[in-house]
Design a protein around this nucleic acid. Sequence first.
DNA 1: AAAATATGAATGAAGATTCATTTATTAAAC
DNA 2: GTTTAATAAATGAATCTTCATTCATATTTT
Lengths: 195, 195
Amino acid sequence: MRTSDKHQKIIQAAIKVLANKGFFNARISDIAKEAQVADGTIYLYFNNKYDILITLFEEEIGKIIVLVKQLIEKETDPKIMLEIFALQHIKMMEEKKELAEVLQVELRQSNKFMKEYRNTKFIEYIDIVSHIIHLGQEKNIFRKDLLPGVAKRAFFGALDEMSRLWILSSSHRYTIEQSANQIVDIFLYGMTEKT
Amino acid sequence: MRTSDKHQKIIQAAIKVLANKGFFNARISDIAKEAQVADGTIYLYFNNKYDILITLFEEEIGKIIVLVKQLIEKETDPKIMLEIFALQHIKMMEEKKELAEVLQVELRQSNKFMKEYRNTKFIEYIDIVSHIIHLGQEKNIFRKDLLPGVAKRAFFGALDEMSRLWILSSSHRYTIEQSANQIVDIFLYGMTEKT
DNA sequence: AAAATATGAATGAAGATTCATTTATTAAAC
DNA sequence: GTTTAATAAATGAATCTTCATTCATATTTT
């Protein structure tokens, strides 16, 4: 039976350790120790060190996608949808600070050292934004000349960079809500002064 | 004498190797080979592996800053300044694809494995944007309610995420100019349809 | 008492760094 | 201007440490 659920225990330990040390500086024995498990036990649940990271990506991003989609499905106004996505994305940073750190740093370089791995879950997450933009265009709320491929990246990138700042610096001038609102506001109405 | 300038040769070799393998998978001997230099020679010019990376950051970002500042100084309209910054940033990606890859990936994780290193050059680069935004506010061209700390990150993040896509994927739907223009346009005027 | 889980010491490969030696460059002496 | 000595630059094989992974053994569960 899986009363102790080692799989989950190891994943959670890995998040903690990887957030602090990064993938290459983290030792398997660090993760084992954090999970209160023997080094060898890890290899009963994962094929190798990479496999821990990949599984972590898939499972944790998967959870986030489910949550965000649920929240958005209830809405019909694409503007509000964007707001929800933004707030949810940045909120995640403080609720799951360590996971966020891992995703920010390791996801970026995973392409580099795991050539074959295509992170479809991550793409699925970003595509939530492009669906919202599409919807907004159909409803005549968003400009028709938006290139959804560019707009989704720009929006996601803005949020993500804001999150990075949030994670990496200790002092915060603005609240998470302020930041998220400001970004959505800029994307909806632009930075130009109405005259 | 420095007719062959090993320092420069090693940096350029490092860019190439790190772009392909990433910092942790790159061996010193790989860099040495690429630079056509003995392994030991590298240690006559750099203290250790980290030192190569840090020096690379400082020197190469430094060059970019000088260039961008030159281009912007000639302008007075903050809108145009933003355009120049955007175009220049994304252009860099194709002109120095390998450098861009290193910056995208390694800069992100450098905080993780070099706790003491504060990348002031990088901050200086991003601050170019916040200066532009400030200027725009003073001139009553940009909204006064913009939080420059958030807006600069959002703008930079949007560009950077776009660049990442450009670097990592091989097929490109839009040109660099299209992408840069679209992003600036969104930031200036928003995504909402004028009705 | 099988079968399934878990352990952690031992193995072996990898690769950053060192340093004794070689080669190239500059200066000095004649 | 040629030979010799001193200094600087470069080499790359050897060293030494650091883990990921394995597996013979032990423990727990059924």
